[in-house]
Write a protein that binds this DNA or RNA. Structure first.
Length: 601
RNA sequence: GGCCCGAUCGUCCAGUGGUUAGGACAGCGCCCUGUCAAGGCGCAGACACGAGUUCAAAUCUCGUUCGGGUCGCCA
């Protein structure tokens, strides 16, 4: 080894010891007659002192610059009285250099590696190896490692075994776009990269591996987001002979224990509440509600059903609903802020948004007069407004936000406004950790655009036992044995009990409108397997990258949880992928590139 | 595919029609023996690209490219 101890490990215990350390020059403080170097490795920093008594060593240290890689031999000693640095784990001691070697010089880095100040994303990715040297990123990678290790240890104790499944599999469209890999040996044929090992793990259940898991890479060729990368990592898990509560209880236990062990600095809100999908949508306008704060949504339909304010009463007459929630202390909102809220509502498909501002000068809700009320809905009577305010729990000085329309539109709009208001009021405290289990998801949802039913979770999800007959009569009403785990408004894991019998699986495919030929072609292998004693089974999958962000104190996006992420355009700026390939490679793959000129607009 | 935001020294920011385009950090030079975001003095260093408006553009408009956010999309 080129070092005898790690920089970050030096303590008073090592006083008087001869050590050899090596690392990067984090900072240099040159006093002319005395030079301090903060030497950094993956474990932390330690201060090295160079005295001019040994001119050769001193001259070497004078050349040191940021990010040079150096080796120092020296003696550990207690720092002189009054010069200890309490901000540093190694701050009680320093290393007095007796030998110094430059292992490798460094160009001046394109950004500061020794501080966590913001840097342009493109530059960070272009020089990712420098970005990863920074404290926050180093900590995020370490956190990620600990999460994965925790999961493996936890599941190993429960007799789960990790089984690798192939990365080159068969394309089964429906759902996300597949990444395709051309086959050299089979011209015109393609492998696909897995969007998840879903069907593979079900095959493993049939195979009798009744407690399976995998830290699995998944690929989806869709547009990116702050919380979405084209390749990402999931804890993929499946068990045989289980019912929903078995999986849910284990999932919750795993995540709680992980949070307690790996994010102890967060205020964990326990016990973890369980909501049905219908409740979550109704009360929070989201199937992954952020329960760090209230701002609960109330139904106002009965209050305004007969209102003079026809925007509301007409919606009720047409079978819609009117719902709203209270933003405490936000009654003095500016015109501009109102416009922003309306624009948020529009983005999520609302026709509009009605706000009611309550003047803080009013004595109470009972004492409200029209002078205390600021709203564009002039036709609302003061009695109606009082009833609304009481229902949503508003007091003078608050702001009430109301949306009207069909249920599937109103609730998500209010859900988004709720998050927006929470952000404005600073309620989304990143030091809190609020898990939440959502159950009883609908099995199918109607896609307006393509005019067909589609599986909300995936088509292998089992309907609840008493729901089967609805598949043919009222598909949208079918409730599935599906469940999610959310934390702070982010979906962390989702799963279900799967169908394990051929006839039942075919019945669901039929309800989804799949032609028989397509079912045979895409899912024949799975249906056949079900005929050979497939056990009842279920499981879940949870995103590792998002979990790192949730547990981290500094990660802002999923990119901060991944060593080598891609830009929003799916580009890797470090390696320059994707890139053209040599024509010989294309020939091997029987691929010809056809350039199509864009038609003039 | 749509919408929104952004692009100024190496980095991070300031700069709302006429500026010697400013600062901090980094870099370079000089000084400095107890600093730890060391300090002092000095030097060097930038308006993404292309059109347009204007007497005059970093600044206004359009486009391109790139980055970010988001809707669609993500079974």
């Amino acid at each position: 080894m080129l070092k005898s101890i790690d920089c970050g490990q030096l303590r008073a215990d090592h006083n008087e010891q001869e050590v050899t350390i090596a690392g990067w020059v984090n900072r240099r403080r040159d006093h002319g007659g005395l030079i301090f170097i903060d030497l950094r490795d993956s474990t932390g920093l330690v201060q090295v002192v160079f005295h001019p008594d040994s001119p050769d060593i001193f001259a070497t240290a004078e050349r040191f610059r940021s990010e040079w890689v150096v080796q120092v031999r020296g003696k550990v000693r207690m720092r002189p009285n009054g010069t200890e640095n309490p901000n540093l784990d190694t701050g009680a001691v320093e290393v007095v250099a007796t030998e110094a070697t430059v292992l490798n010089a460094s160009k001046t880095p394109p950004f500061d590696v020794n501080q966590d100040a913001p840097v342009d994303e493109l530059l960070r990715m272009r020089y990712r190896y420098l970005d990863l040297r920074r404290t926050h990123m180093r900590e995020n990678l370490r956190l990620r490692h600990r999460i994965v290790k925790f999961i493996r240890d936890y599941l190993d104790d429960l007799r789960f075994i990790e089984i690798e499944t192939p990365i080159l599999i068969k394309s089964t469209p429906e759902g996300a776009r597949d990444y395709l890999v051309p086959s050299r040996n089979h011209p015109g044929n393609f492998y696909a990269l897995p969007q998840s090992p879903q069907q593979l793990k079900q095959m493993l259940m049939v195979a009798g591996a009744d407690r399976y898991f995998q830290i699995a890479r998944c690929f989806r060729d869709e547009d990116l987001r702050a919380d979405r990368q084209p390749e990402f990592t999931q804890l993929d898990l499946e068990m045989a002979f289980v019912e929903p509560d078995d999986v849910i209880d284990m999932m919750v236990d795993l995540y709680i224990k992980m949070a307690q062990a790996l994010a102890p600095q967060k205020e964990l809100i326990l016990p973890v509440p369980r909501l049905t999908y219908a409740d979550a949508m109704s009360r929070f306008g989201s199937d992954k509600p952020d329960l760090r704060f209230g701002l609960e949504i109330s139904d106002l339909t009965d209050i305004v059903a007969g209102s003079e304010f026809q925007v509301f009463s007409n919606v009720v007459r047409d079978g819609g609903m009117v719902k709203g929630f209270n933003a405490p202390g936000y009654g003095d909102i500016t015109r501009r802020q109102i416009d922003e809220l309306v624009s948020v509502a529009r983005t999520y498909g609302a026709g509009g948004l009605v706000i009611i501002g309550l003047d803080a000068a009013a004595e109470s809700i009972d004492a409200l007069t029209t002078d205390h009320v600021r709203t564009p809905a002039k036709a609302l009577s003061i009695e109606e407004i009082k009833a609304i305010a009481t229902r949503v729990g508003a007091v003078p000085g608050d702001l009430i936000l109301i949306a009207a329309g069909a249920q599937p539109k109103v609730e998500p709009v209010l859900g988004q406004l709720r998050l927006n208001i929470a952000e404005r009021l600073g309620l989304n405290d990143r030091n809190k950790l609020a898990f939440c289990v959502v159950t009883d998801f609908p099995a199918l949802e109607w896609l307006e655009d393509s005019q067909r039913w589609h599986a909300m979770h995936h088509p292998f999800t089992a309907p609840q036992d008493d729901q089967w007959d609805l598949l043919e009569t009222d598909p949208g009403a079918v409730i599935a044995k599906a469940y999610d785990l959310a934390a702070n408004g982010s979906e962390l894991a989702g799963g279900s009990i799967r169908i394990h019998q051929r006839a039942q699986q075919e019945r669901v495919f039929a309800a989804l409108g799949y032609p028989q030929a397509e079912v045979d072609e895409l899912f024949g292998h799975l249906l056949e397997a079900f005929e050979y004693g497939a056990p009842p089974h279920g499981g879940f999958a949870g995103g590792i990258d998002r979990l790192v962000v949730t547990f981290s104190d500094t990660a802002e996006s999923i990119r901060d949880a991944i060593a080598f992420p891609k830009t929003q355009a799916g580009v890797d700026p470090l390696f320059g992928a994707p890139s053209p390939v040599a024509s010989a490679q294309l020939d091997d793959l029987h691929i010809a590139i056809v350039t199509v000129d864009e038609p003039e607009a």
